[in-house]
């Protein structure tokens, strides 16, 4: 009886998750011919042309930079929040996640207001008689937008792992002669690796595939792989090529996840797959 309740979901899952994914694969591995379609790897070989590879490299580059910045900013933040610098920890955590509840588009749009030529930042700079800057529509703005949007995805998993570390373990390390720096390097850091891994994955993945941030803050001149896919589907209409890029992206993300879980050390289940 209880199993029956699964039926609607299984049907839904097959129709709206499995079939669409198969369709993506189908389009990726076929090309249209006069009579219909034929199996082919052409869509993939096209992707390895220099123009597209350059887009791929640029996406990878920006995503890696953003992920690193998030890690460097986020790890200390997570550590401080998990520690005892604040009395009301849950309030601090709440304050930390509140901005994420703002619509993603609006959050990104807000940076337009700050960064544009006559925006908040330049008004502020003018007020202090400093030279104006033009960051908007540069790589820098795109990275800024990514860091802003994805920083919490880095901090929260690390925070959650750090705050679960048994205080006794830290004391035990001190008891066995480790000074605070050694305690961090030899105990806290390795124990927090699972959090770091899921943080990196959760930042890298959307950073690699976003097309909104690059469109709004990069002004459309900095095409990322997400924009490329969007164009294929909504402008060019080349679904085969768009699907192929998507498949490549899934493979890249699966690979990076595999690499990450290797670093994380064997079977600790973060339950990503």
């Amino acid at each position: 009886m209880k199993r029956l309740s699964l039926t609607p979901y299984v049907i839904w899952m097959v129709l709206f998750t499995v079939v669409p994914m198969l369709l993506v694969l189908y389009y990726a591995f076929t090309v249209p011919t006069e009579g219909g379609t034929t199996w082919s790897l052409e869509n993939f070989t096209r992707f390895f042309q220099p123009i597209y590879l350059r887009v791929f490299i640029r996406s990878l580059n920006l995503a890696v930079i953003s992920t690193l910045i998030c890690l460097l900013l986020g790890y200390p933040a997570a550590m401080i929040m998990a520690g005892n610098a604040f009395k009301r920890k849950h309030v601090i955590m709440l304050l930390f996640v509140v901005p994420m509840w703002m619509n993603f588009l609006l959050r990104t749009y807000a940076w337009l207001t700050i960064l544009e030529r006559n925006g908040f930042l330049n008004s502020l700079l003018t007020f202090f008689s400093l030279p104006r800057v033009n960051i908007l529509y540069t790589n820098g703005a795109v990275v800024l937008g990514m860091v802003y949007n994805f920083l919490p995805f880095m901090v929260l998993p690390i925070y959650s792992v750090l705050s679960k570390i048994d205080k006794g373990v830290v004391e035990a390390a001190g008891d066995l002669g480790a000074n605070p720096f050694q305690v961090f390097i030899k105990v806290i850091l390795p124990l927090s690796l699972p959090g770091v891994v899921s943080g990196i994955t959760m930042v890298f993945m959307p950073a690699m595939t976003t097309f909104v941030i690059s469109r709004l803050l990069g002004g459309g001149q900095f095409t990322l792989i997400g924009n490329l896919i969007e164009q294929q589907f909504l402008v060019v209409g080349d679904w085969g090529f768009g699907s192929a890029i998507s498949v490549v992206m899934i493979v890249v993300i699966l690979l990076s996840m595999a690499v990450m879980s290797f670093f994380e050390g064997e079977e600790k289940d973060v339950a990503l797959w």
Binding site: F16, T17, P20, W239, S246, I250
Partner: peptide, 18 residues
Amino acid sequence: YLPVLNPEIVTAISLMLL
């Protein structure tokens, strides 16, 4: 987990194709 882990844009285009 597939829709949770898939990049949003992949979910989006797969549904569009459907």
